[in-house]
Amino acid sequence: MLLSPAPLHIPDGFLTPFISLVFWGATMIMVGLAISKTNKTLGERQIPLMGLMAAFIFAAQMLNFPVAGGTSGHFLGGALAAIVLGPWAGILVMTAVIAVQALLFQDGGLLVMGANIFNMGILTVVIGFGLYRMVIHRKIGARLVAAGLASWLATMAAALLTSLQLWLSGASRLEIVLPAMLGVHTPIGLGEALITVAALAFIERTRPDLLTSEKAASGGGRGWIIAGIIVSLLAVLLSPLASGSPDGLERVAENLGFLEIGQSAPCEILPDYTIPFLGETHLSTIIAGMVGALVLLGLLILLGRSLRKSPPHT
């Protein structure tokens, strides 16, 4: 099947009504802000542009390519959309894409759509645009590396938040869902990063006017840098913490009263209930993550060089 997206589209039934509504609330605030910002700042030309960009992201998600070990590099597109359209328009475009995927193809549920939009359409845009915005006035090489790192991190952050939502809803055990999700998404994020970088390099070669720094900066101010850095740091710090000591995270959530409201009955982890390979799993997750990041960085630098050397297509 052509449309086999990354396992980030949560179906209905997996999240509790409480978690679903919390993320619907957060999503509605962000989308509402995005609507008022785009209505104010963007011209009338922007409406067909955003519509076509949404269709583009949808179609581009079909262009997958094999990465390694039978997994395919899938393209989510949040980071790319934010970089070429600006963050607010990017959020609206991704919202439309995720809504149509859920409504028309049942790819992701309706009650949980708020969470899905938040994970794939808002988190990815904040990280993608925030990190790119830092280097927006730099040379193309630096911008490509930033875009690649940002899109990898955005995918991983989306996987992390999805795992946390599933766990808080009592639909999965944290020590299992987290390493599994992060593990699966390490190569998927790699694919995302590579495609985003190559696509940006292609656009830079053929229509550099679309990627000028003034144009991109007009979409969102410096506040996005701070937001991007904070969210990225949270994701980077939270994933080893969560995989290293799920008990600690569980206790925090419990203290905050999350688990009682969130679940019809909490799935507590008893202290004497341990699985022998658990320790190894956490360690290997962290190491795999770090190795993944290093490999990614190396690949991005290589790719950046090869793209700069190759003559422009005419």
Binding site: F56, A59, A60, L63, N64, F65, P66, G73, F75, L80, V84, G191, L194, I195, T196, V197, A198, A199, L200, A201, F202, I203, T206, R207, L303, S306, L307
Partner: peptide, 14 residues
């Protein structure tokens, strides 16, 4: 492979 796919995405974008 990524470059080929990325160029396709770029082309589709344009």
């Amino acid at each position: 492979r990524a470059k080929v796919t990325g160029s396709m995405v770029g082309q589709l974008f344009l």
